[in-house]
Design a binder for these strands. Structure first.
Lengths: 215, 215
DNA sequence: ACAAAACGGTGAACAGTGTTTACTTTCTGA
DNA sequence: TCAGAAAGTAAACACTGTTCACCGTTTTGT
């Protein structure tokens, strides 16, 4: 990691950081719509136009927030991986961590799947995709499935990439639901016997159960 | 269904319909952001303010589009239910239908889970929730699970409401992914062995498999 | 050291957005 | 027929993201 430490660059980086952290604060609480350039400018005591000296557009600014979020997501999943645990438990834990982090910052997570911030498919190989933190999160999932198959914990005829996608999709669904439906999994007509945390575990369990080798 | 047929009401209904169908056309192609009041007004050759004589706000207008969409979704799931099929197949088919309809109108589906168009939970009973078409779609899912448990096709110790939610969540994830990621399930780093349709079946299969009674 | 160029910052404007207000025209019910 | 309601409108309000011309200051090249 190379850092230009000329005094000019240091000053510039400081202002850039001030913009980003103010944006992060507002975005976390009020989301993409609550974050306006003018409000952001006021908060850091600059003119709106000044922000454009540091970011090409509001979109690129928000993109940076999203990337930082997925970096935290990755770090959290790494940190929580207890290698002494058997595969099944470790997998369930990883899935649960993914959702819990996503739910902790619902606006970040939701925004990452809206705008067209996706490499246009169909893609070639892991190289491109793995360069975004979002991509790395998926590849971590895929690696987990591959390990499970190799170890023999999961059904061996499964295609790891395919299964990883299916799991990812189901995880995403829950994160999205919790982020968007107030009080989920409590729901009119649903009879919420479980708390949010318990439901997350239940969901992760259902997924793994469908994949495990029949005993 | 009561309809006021005074000439005044008929004219009013006609204009209202013209607004709605123009809105539907634009919304289906360009989504919520592409649909602006001014553009809509121009398309039907009225002034922007005129639209507010028929709808309180843009949001209520879009809400009506969303409700109509979920009505189509429900109808499609009903229509596709082949009662002569065994439970497992019928269930897989229902899930696949849900996703295919959602994917056919990605903007409608996505919008339904963004704005805060949700009854604030935790809720009392099925009555309230079942009054929106979105709610009815979930209750249909729940009914399906209950049937599966009663028939003995699904594990009997499961709570139907809970399982239905988990399934719904996983379905939602896929619909959302396909709606937002161009070309999904093709994905850089994912090696897309399956087409979209095949992936939908695979996903639906994974869910049901995790629930079926161990043989 | 000095001119030239790049940088950081600004106020004002442009082109949009959803919505409201005051106003005119048209229609309708008694 | 005539008052009052309904339908429709132009113009404005308060926003939005973004760009432009301009300003001092700072850095750079000779």
């Amino acid at each position: 990691m190379k850092v230009d430490n000329s005094p000019a660059e240091r000053r510039r980086g400081k202002v850039r950081g001030k913009i980003l952290s103010a944006a992060e604060r507002v975005f976390a609480q009020e989301g993409q719509l609550g974050l306006s350039i003018r409000r952001l400018a006021e908060e850091i005591d600059y003119s709106p136009a000044a922000i454009y000296k540091y970011f090409d557009s509001k979109e690129t600014l928000v993109d940076e927030l999203k990337e930082a979020f997925f970096q935290r997501l990755l770090a959290e999943m790494d940190r929580g991986a207890d290698l002494t645990l058997p595969f099944g438990q470790r997998a369930r834990q990883a899935l649960a961590t993914y959702i819990r982090v996503a739910v902790a910052k619902p606006h970040h997570y939701a925004a990452a799947f809206n705008g067209q911030s996706w490499p246009e498919g169909p893609g070639e190989d892991d190289a491109d995709f793995g360069e975004t933190n979002k991509g790395r999160a998926f590849l971590m999932l895929k690696g987990m499935v591959e390990e499970g198959i190799a170890i023999g914990a999961l059904q061996s005829e499964l295609d790891a990439g395919l299964v990883a996608k299916s799991i990812w999709v189901a995880l995403h669904g829950l994160a999205q639901m919790i982020a968007h439906i107030p009080g989920f999994p409590a729901l009119k007509g649903g009879y919420s016997a479980l708390s949010q945390d318990e439901f997350i575990d239940f969901h992760a369990d259902l997924l793994i159960r469908g994949l495990e080798k029949d005993i």
